[in-house]
Design a protein around this nucleic acid. Structure first.
Lengths: 342, 342
DNA sequence: CTGAAAGCGCTAACAA
DNA sequence: TTGTTAGCGCTTTCAG
């Protein structure tokens, strides 16, 4: 392995000088510079980033913590995050927690271990409050994206979940539906809470009652949503919903498939709306009406805020006010609710 | 920031002793051990992984290089990779290259910079041969997964692309199709080459001619595949294919959507088969017949081989024979070709 | 059984 | 304009 020392002796200069040309951190005479560059090429030298990191206490690495990389929602956030980070000379590493609190805790430790300089967290759940609170206590450079924890008061960028749900519900109501069910996601998620509230608000405002059975969980996944739909469809006729709002598109596809298996036509017998607007929602065979979540934007903004924090000297971090950005969402009307998209 | 020195002085022992209990690397008397553990708790000490890494020249990090994290193919590989790595005490960071040779080169540098201990590469393309060849020259610990470079002779785990294509083609032929087109993926990909060969082989063996126009590229993406399908459908009737094999499921959905827009019924007017067997291929609305690629297995095996390499002392690496594992694939018959899945 | 100290590869203060 | 050197936080050899 060749080190800075090898380059120094090969070019007949001090290691300091090599370091200076490597980092362009002070003037070095053209002749020496050339000799150094030459030596670097000849010996095919690559500086050791770990040693450098130890010295300057920075890793030039950002981490993105996601609950499930397999969920098509996250890759777009990841991409945005990478693009913004790359621009600033950071590498981003994606960490998958599988919604597991222990793995989240492990990920967070990377910050204190010095392996990563900042973190974007998309996995905040109520059950993780304790460990997340520590981030705040230590004033570690993190920003929450998509999910957040109410009352924690840390930088975050989320989407307008409440109004998204209101829009979805009103759309259904406008189409004449009265019996609309709301299929939530993981428990302890502020997202589910807000969207459910939006749904309840819209129903109430329109003067329609909500049967308790209509508030059900599809876990934001295909299979549970499929099953929950069957449960819903077994309700007595007067309570059986004619429309279902699912917390995300993947779950909504579970709803659609359950309808298919039950010989129910979508949207005639059952209307469905999702959240996210994944690629697949737009395929001709699916044409899912959904609330588009600006996930690229979510990732981008979160990363930019994080980068901003990392620029400031430590002192200012505490002084600066907390950012909380709420991005607007948009109802994309397609075919699964009938109406003008049909 | 609290360091090992703080713990040592707080517990009134030497830093060496602290290190020994931290790593469980030699006997320490119970009293001292307890004092040290106590100090660690009291000061809430977390060892600096960068300093440790510099000293032991290991980062306990693996990297997975993917071409496009947004493609639902990769997250499954990532998950497998993470699970295997985690088991062995490694963290994995996913690096997205966007199929960009420069970003691949940057990623590979991490190995020599000491930021990562080993790498799983899923982005090998002909154009990257030079930079990939260097990995071999330096005997760096990498393994190729999914994609490989012929003649490079490095560890790799791939799927049986040739036979998958043969199976897909024969299935179509068995259903009575004679005019089947093959829509390839990115250029310079060994995967495309092998599958195309499998297709050609099966067609030849059955004694059917292949029109040059039938070998077209859909770039393994939705939009280009959509467009390519329209091109194909504009051929004069005698050449117009009645079936299309797409290099992947995402592209196959583009084919299906194009057919829909052209008022062609799938499978009656046009049969389509994909590769991958993504989650969405199984939804009721799509029911795509496809060649299942064992991507979880791909990621798992590749990671295990990599881990194995990392266990050996450097010397043995060169001596050990190259692994090349070819995993079997399976044709999943559903609805888009008609026949028994219809 | 434990500690002192060298040193991993690099940066940057200080000196010249 | 350049070099010497301390030291980042840790592991591990060597001596005791």
């Amino acid at each position: 392995m060749t080190t800075i020392k090898d380059i120094a002796s090969h070019a007949k200069v001090s290691v300091a000088t090599v370091s200076y040309v490597l980092n362009n951190t002070r003037y070095v005479s053209p002749e020496k510079k050339e000799r150094i560059l030459q030596a670097i090429r000849e010996l095919d030298y690559v500086p050791n980033a770990v040693a450098r990191g130890l010295r300057v206490r920075r890793s030039q690495t950002l981490s993105l913590v996601v609950a499930d990389i397999t969920n098509p929602f996250y890759p777009d956030i990841a991409k945005a995050c990478e693009e913004a980070a790359q621009e600033a000379g950071y590498l981003v590493n994606i960490i998958n927690t599988n919604e597991d609190g222990q793995r989240l805790a492990d990920a967070l430790r990377l910050l204190r271990e010095g392996k990563t300089d900042g973190m974007i967290i998309t996995t905040a759940l109520e059950k993780d409050r304790t460990v997340l609170q520590e981030l705040k206590d230590y004033a570690l450079p993190v920003v929450f994206a998509h999910r957040e924890l109410p009352g924690l008061d840390m930088d975050s960028v989320v989407s307008d979940n409440f109004n998204g749900a209101v829009a979805a519900t009103n759309h259904l109501l406008g189409l004449g539906h009265r019996k609309v069910a709301f299929m939530g996601g993981v428990e302890g998620s502020e997202i589910t809470r807000l969207r459910r509230e939006g749904y309840v608000f819209a129903m109430r405002q329109a003067g329609f009652a909500i049967e308790p059975e209509w508030l059900i969980s599809g876990e934001a996944r295909y299979e549970p949503s499929y099953l929950a739909t069957r449960t819903l469809m077994e309700l007595e006729a007067s309570k059986r919903p004619t429309a279902i709002i699912n917390i995300n598109d993947v779950g909504a596809i579970g709803v659609i498939d359950a309808a298919y298996d039950l010989r129910l036509r979508v949207p005639d017998d059952l209307a469905v709306v999702g959240f996210d607007d994944l690629f697949i929602a737009n395929s001709r065979q699916i044409q899912l009406t959904t609330v588009r979540i600006p996930r690229y934007e979510l990732g981008k903004r979160a990363t930019l805020i994080l980068l901003e924090k990392l620029k400031k000297p430590d002192r200012e971090v505490d002084v600066k006010p907390t950012n909380r950005i709420v991005l607007p969402v948009e109802l994309i009307v397609r075919r699964t609710c009938g109406g003008r998209g049909a």
